[in-house]
Nucleic acid binder design. Structure first.
Lengths: 311, 311
DNA sequence: GTCATTTGATTGACTTTGTCAACAAACTAT
DNA sequence: ATAGTTTGTTGACAAAGTCAATCAAATGAC
């Protein structure tokens, strides 16, 4: 078998394994829900009605993947229990618009609270970090299996936290090795600079921003004081898998804004000519190329560039 | 609301969202399975019997979370269809040992193949990388929700590769912050040392070892030349979740062996008295405490220690 | 050894859940 | 106007699952 074939087989086994595991997990969760007086299907209906504004029976049936006949009977039962209100639709005489009555909303709130609490109890022992890795992993699964719903995936730009810097070093080292063949000294170079930054940066005049998506660090940039009213932008990096979302531009803009607010008069940065996508970001932000020089670093012959921006 | 409270709420919402999504996803998968002549429950029984060697009805009922009465009826049906064989248990006269007959194994193979193909079709469009991120995310979820299944998988000690150093920095920074409350300068300290090492280490006389488990870096140590025939062991670290496997001892032993082979006359290391588990490893390896001094670093008052070992 | 208790498997009697076909009323397209 | 859809409903069933009772074998206390 080919090596990719091998990996494919392992992936299939992994997914099947997870599916069996998660089937049991969801089963256990639903058992908790069964302590409520409503059946699973009824709960799902209540949930759907509780979170959407107005739905018709046919929409419900489509969205819950439920048989219309069965749904009709369940709705009848819920109407008789005064939990659900049905009114004829204005646009379509056949359709009935469904909504929750006051006691229905109460029932929904109870269900919602119970479910919320159940999940909360599961997350508690994981701690905040464990919980966010968990949720990040879930988002990644969803993004993989259902690309349509996550077309506009959110990311946040935030200040760095403990542990971020190492990730930034690792990813940059691996990335430039893979894309441009730079050797291990590049990772060392980044580590030394970033380490020096951490040890002695001035929070009022210097800063590191991190882009995070799905609980993963996917980009970063540093702004340091170069003296003489000049701020230096360093080590801009965006994970290739997230390119095209404008993360690089956002990071650079954060830098510029911070530099302006802090009172710097100009910004400067050093990069290499082969980093084309970074170059475009700098141009767009208003930077001008002011000097180039050849150098040999990280096992390659490179052309370094200095870019400036008057603030 | 507090900031952690906020994050907790978001995590809960994320998990609930994922659960709704995955319920639908699993439902869709099971529909594919329903094209087989067996019901979902029957399929689950066949699957369980097909993958395990011998099971009793009560074990099955416990593992599948199925009512014994219902299971009994399903088994009767499967026995009548000649798919399942039942024989009295040798140890327990009440229990019946279940297994698949020849046609039963065939039926299982068909089910298995169908499920395999279904997953394969889902993974295909993701490509090998997409598939392995997916499976990785699933494993992380499982590890978070079901820590018991963490068996005792082997680890390997190997030289560092590009990207490892950043991970080492990140994990150490996060770990010492969490366990001892050290501030961000510690991550910077580690980054600077590790970065300097990468930039200019002599591969013949200096080395970094990494412990890897589950394709994850879980420990590391550096050995550097301190001059005058002395080798310095630096930054020993083992991920707490893997403690007790002897990884720390293995790493230190690698260092000692390398130092001997390289012709160093003695080894030295610097650590802090609060790192008790590291201290035990050094003692066991033959190191002697030679000096202690108080210092203020990483936001804490600490007691530094020097340990020596004659080779 | 005996006797009460527990455990494994089964059965009868039942409820809940879900499916299928048929149908009327309302809508759409021509 | 009319043929064809769509929406919601009902009857008739089938499948899935539950609960209490039962029996036989095993276990534990004495």
């Amino acid at each position: 078998m080919t090596q990719t074939g091998q990996r494919h087989e392992e992936a299939i086994a992994g997914v099947r394994d997870f599916n069996r595991f998660y089937t049991r997990f969801l089963g256990a969760l639903n058992e908790g829900l069964l302590r409520s007086p409503y059946s699973l299907s009824e709960s799902r209906i209540l949930y759907e009605l509780g979170t959407r504004h107005s739905v018709t029976a046919s929409q419900l049936s489509a969205e819950l993947g439920m048989d219309p006949a069965y749904l009709s009977r369940l709705l009848k039962k819920l109407r008789e229990a005064d939990l659900v209100l049905a009114s004829a639709s204005a646009e379509d005489g056949r359709a009935t618009v469904l909504s929750l009555s006051k006691p229905g909303r109460e029932a929904f709130a109870n269900l919602d609270r119970a479910s919320h609490e159940e999940i909360s109890n599961i997350l508690m022992p994981l701690g905040p970090d464990g919980a966010s890795t968990l949720v990040g992993a879930m988002q990644r699964i969803r993004a993989a299996l259902d690309p349509s719903t996550t077309e506009n995936p959110p990311y946040v730009i935030r200040p760095h936290r403990i542990g971020d810097i190492g990730i930034i070093i690792s990813r940059q080292g691996a990335l430039y090795a893979q894309e441009y063949g730079w050797d291990g000294t590049f990772e060392g170079f980044v580590a030394e600079i970033a380490g020096g930054f951490l040890k002695s940066y001035d929070p009022k005049r210097e800063h590191c921003w991190v882009a995070e998506r799905h609980a993963e660090v996917v980009g970063s940039v540093f702004l340091v004081d170069a003296g003489g009213g000049t701020a230096k932008l360093r080590m801009l990096w965006v994970e290739p898998s997230t390119r095209g979302l404008g993360i690089g531009g956002r990071l650079v803009n954060e830098c510029i804004r911070f530099a302006r607010d802090t009172g710097y008069e100009r910004m400067t940065l050093w990069t290499n000519d082969i980093l084309v996508s970074a170059r475009r970001i700098y141009e767009k932000a208003g930077f001008r190329l002011v000097a180039e020089e050849r150098h040999h670093s990280f096992g390659k012959d490179l052309v370094g560039q200095n870019w400036d921006l008057e603030l």
